[in-house]
Lab assay of single mutants.
Amino acid sequence: MGFKLLSKLLVYLTASIMAIASPLAFSVDSSGEYPTVSEIPVGEVRLYQIADGVWSHIATQSFDGAVYPSNGLIVRDGDELLLIDTAWGAKNTAALLAEIEKQIGLPVTRAVSTHFHDDRVGGVDVLRAAGVATYASPSTRRLAEVEGNEIPTHSLEGLSSSGDAVRFGPVELFYPGAAHSTDNLIVYVPSASVLYGGCAIYELSRTSAGNVADADLAEWPTSIERIQQHYPEAQFVIPGHGLPGGLDLLKHTTNVVKAHTNRSVVE
């Protein structure tokens, strides 16, 4: 069995187990497998329904001669939608809004960016022009300005110390501490036991640490421990890039980060 097929099978099995364990909360999309990078042309966006009122959005972007996937989250909030992270750029984010209108038909009224990198804030200006209120932590807003990236308009308070959590509509926002970046936030959907790890969490097929220019490698494993301790009931975990899975993604990420750190020390 090929690795790609095995990865998709694991996603399907995880979703099936969740649907059985929580039949009222989960209505997993039966329309197909989780979209992969090879299936999404740059400039297009796919939506994948995880649970009743919960979707991931998947886009792709060219970077350094390669094409990478990027995940975000959409959560229903009454007759409105909360968006977590842009679709990595203005063109993708405009396509995301169009796809949401086509498939869901509810307005996106608020959006949260989970850290300051372009795959999370690139497209904020498109959201703002569409009347979406954009939010991020003060740290993310400051770092985005320093980096020359787009800056969300509103500040999220109460997320300055490791372990801080605040309720934001249908989700809980959690600051686990520094990891992929010093400002990275985690998003949890309690009604569906869905954990969105953003770039602080890796997919299972990833074996290298990737972009760690703004990471705190020493603190990252401790931050992941905080996530595990705060959300032990999480059933569906979405990484910032690639295929979702279960809580095993947290341990896998820790292993990859520690291996990278150990290699760096040896070198």
Rank of each mutant, 00 (worst) to 15 (best):
G2F: 15
G2M: 05
G2W: 08
F3N: 15
F3K: 09
K4G: 02
L5K: 15
L6G: 10
S7A: 08
Y12H: 08
Y12D: 15
A15W: 06
S16Y: 12
I17K: 15
A21C: 15
S22K: 08
S22C: 09
F26P: 08
F26C: 10
G32I: 07
E39D: 15
P41H: 13
V42N: 12
G43L: 06
Q49Y: 14
I50V: 11
I50W: 05
H57I: 01
F63D: 15
G65E: 10
S70G: 01
L73K: 00
R76N: 05
E80F: 07
L81V: 12
L82M: 09
L83D: 02
I84D: 00
A87D: 00
W88Y: 00
G89W: 02
K91H: 12
A95R: 12
A95G: 10
L97A: 00
A98Y: 10
E99D: 11
P107N: 12
V108I: 09
R110H: 09
A111Q: 08
S113M: 05
H115W: 00
F116Y: 08
D119A: 06
G122Q: 09
G122L: 05
G123A: 03
V124M: 09
L127M: 04
R128Y: 11
A130Q: 15
G131T: 07
V132K: 04
S137N: 09
S139R: 11
S139K: 11
T140H: 02
L143V: 05
E150M: 02
T153A: 12
H154D: 11
H154K: 09
S155C: 06
S160Y: 10
S160K: 13
S162E: 14
G163H: 07
A165M: 14
G169Q: 05
D183M: 01
I186M: 06
Y188H: 06
V189F: 04
P190T: 10
P190S: 11
A192P: 06
S193N: 12
V194L: 08
L195D: 00
L195Y: 04
L195R: 00
G198K: 02
R206D: 06
R206F: 15
A209Y: 04
G210V: 05
G210L: 05
G210M: 04
A213R: 10
D214N: 08
A215K: 05
A215Q: 07
A218Q: 14
I227D: 00
Q229L: 14
P232S: 10
Q235P: 06
F236A: 10
G240L: 04
G242S: 05
G245T: 02
H252E: 01
N255V: 12
V257F: 07
T261K: 09
N262G: 13
